[in-house]
C-alpha cells in the first residue's frame, strides 16, 4: 500500500464520517440554526465525495448550488422564523417503532444485496469518445455535447422548470397585503377593507 492510496482511503473515511455526523446532526440537533449549518457540512462532504469518485464537474456543481445557494436559502428560511418555543420531547409511539423497523429492514436488505452483487463484472458499454483519463475539460465537454445534443428536450424543459419554480416561490413568498394595499390606493376603493383578515 503506497502513500497515495493511504491518503485516498483516509480522505474517503473522513468524508463519509462527515456525511454521517452531519446528517445525524441535521436531524437530531434541537436548535434549527445548528441543523441548517450541519446540513451545510453534509452538502460540502457530498461534494468532496464526488471529488473522490472522480466526478469533478458534479462536485463543483454541488458546491455551487447546494452549499452556495440552497444552504444559504435554508439558513435564511431559518432566520425568518420565530424562536422555537422550547424543546418538547417527541412522543415515541407505535409509529416510531414501525418506521425504525422499516428503515432497518430496508437498510439491511440494501446492504446485503449490494454486497452480494458482483459489480466488477458489469460491462460498461464504451460510449463514443469518453476517455477514461477524464481531465476536467473533456469531461465537461462531453456533458455539454450530451446536454445540447441528446438531451435537449429535458434541457429546455429545465428552463421552464426554473421559471415555474421562480414564479411559484415569489408568488408564495411575496407580501400579498402590500400588493393589495397598492392596488387599493390606485383604484381608490374604500370598501375593500375586509380583504385583510
Amino acid at each position: 500500500m503506497n502513500i497515495s492510496e493511504l491518503i485516498h482511503d483516509f480522505v474517503l473515511a473522513l468524508v463519509e464520517l462527515g456525511i454521517l455526523l452531519g446528517s445525524l446532526g441535521a436531524v437530531l440537533l434541537v436548535n434549527t440554526v445548528n441543523s441548517a449549518f450541519s446540513l451545510g457540512l453534509v452538502f460540502t462532504c457530498i461534494s468532496l465525495l464526488y471529488f473522490v469518485l472522480n466526478a469533478d464537474f458534479v462536485a463543483a456543481a454541488q458546491l455551487l448550488v447546494y452549499v452556495g445557494a440552497i444552504n444559504v436559502l435554508t439558513v435564511f428560511a431559518v432566520m425568518i422564523t420565530d424562536e422555537p418555543a422550547g424543546s418538547e420531547t417527541t412522543a415515541r409511539g407505535i409509529g416510531y417503532i414501525i418506521t425504525a423497523g422499516t428503515c432497518t429492514i430496508l437498510f439491511s436488505i440494501l446492504s446485503f444485496v449490494i454486497h452480494n452483487t458482483k459489480w466488477s463484472d458489469l460491462s460498461l458499454i464504451p460510449q463514443s469518445g469518453i476517455s477514461t483519463s477524464g481531465t476536467l475539460g473533456s469531461n465537461v465537454q462531453q456533458l455539454g455535447y450530451k446536454l445540447l445534443g441528446e438531451f435537449v428536450i429535458p434541457f429546455e424543459l429545465l428552463s421552464i422548470l426554473l421559471l415555474a419554480a421562480l414564479v411559484g416561490a415569489i408568488n408564495l413568498a411575496r407580501n400579498e397585503d402590500a400588493f393589495i394595499v397598492n392596488k387599493k390606493s390606485a383604484a381608490s376603493a374604500p370598501y375593500k377593507n375586509s380583504t385583510f383578515f
Partner: peptide, 13 residues
C-alpha cells in the same frame, strides 16, 4: 433523464 425532469415538473407545479 426526461422522465425525471418532467416528473419533477409535474410535482413542482
Amino acid at each position: 433523464v426526461t422522465i425525471y425532469v418532467s416528473l419533477e415538473f409535474l410535482a413542482l407545479s
